[in-house]
Design a binder for these strands. Structure first.
Length: 239
DNA sequence: TTAGAAGGTACGTTTACATCA
DNA sequence: ACTGATGTAAACGTACCTTCT
């Protein structure tokens, strides 16, 4: 505020001049009285502004008595004081709104960037899943136990049974488990109870783009890696 | 309880003035 | 030096609210 006032090129009236002007205005009976008042409009002096600002800092609204007192101190009309406070409140509000906008904008930008990185992460997870699925297909091709009820085999079971000795596949499984546990823990945890067990055995994978001709392998509940219907929806939401 | 006057505020607009290209 | 555009602050008009009688 004071910066804006610095360098003002007007010559402030003294209180006496102001009173004189006011007296003239009051005495003027012309129909253009209002215009005459406006024509004498002068910016308040630095000293007046300083005092007004200091009071505004402590109270943004003036009590009537204080307004009169201030008017007397500054040689202004009470109405001028009231109007100054009105305008000051308006400027204050406008600044505050601007500041709030900046804050919200920063938060939004941050969220948007998080969203982007999560999207990228999801993409890489899907690629890993695709690879794992292909590996499973290969295993199943060479192992007839994949069919029928035993077709329910899964990566973890294979891994635990030391059937899958492919270090690359194991690494992929580890990575996948790790990333899922990091990112989906909060979402999947609610399905990890009895309800989760049920989901494990009855899930339907309808994503034809990624589901192979074999069904997606379900994972042991302990692996924290399975696709419930809700997480499918979550994934679809991100597409 | 209701009506109306008085006083206050928010908000949008107008006006006068300063500054700058 | 002059001028038009622009920004800013003082002032105004109006609608609305609260308080008091």
């Amino acid at each position: 505020m004071s910066n804006q006032l610095d360098g003002r090129g007007y010559s402030p009236e003294t209180p006496d001049e102001r009173l004189e002007n006011f007296a003239c205005q009051q005495l003027s009976q012309s129909p253009r009285k209002k215009k005459n008042i406006a024509k004498n409009k002068r910016r308040f002096s630095d000293e007046q502004i300083r005092l007004l600002e200091s009071i505004f800092e402590s109270e943004t609204k003036l009590e009537p008595r204080k307004k009169l007192q201030l008017a007397g101190e500054l040689g202004l009309q009470p109405r001028q004081i009231a109007i100054w406070f009105q305008n000051r409140r308006a400027r204050w509000k406008s600044k505050r709104i601007e500041q709030e906008y900046k804050t919200l904008r920063a938060k939004y930008d941050n969220l948007a960037s998080c969203f982007e990185s999560l999207k990228n992460e999801r993409q890489s997870l899907l690629i890993q899943l695709q690879k794992l699925n292909e590996l499973l297909d290969e295993k199943c091709d060479g192992n007839r136990t994949c069919k029928g009820s035993e077709g329910n085999n899964n990566l973890l079971a294979s891994n635990n049974g030391n059937i899958n000795n492919d270090p690359k596949a194991q690494q992929g499984l580890y990575d996948t488990e790790f990333m899922c546990s990091q990112n989906n823990k909060s979402r999947d945890i609610e399905h990890s109870g009895d309800e989760g067990h049920e989901l494990l055995n009855h899930q339907e994978y309808t994503d034809s783009s990624l589901a192979s001709h074999n069904q997606w392998c379900s994972f042991d509940s302990g692996s924290q890696f399975y696709l419930s219907s809700s997480s499918s929806q979550w994934f679809n939401f991100w597409i």
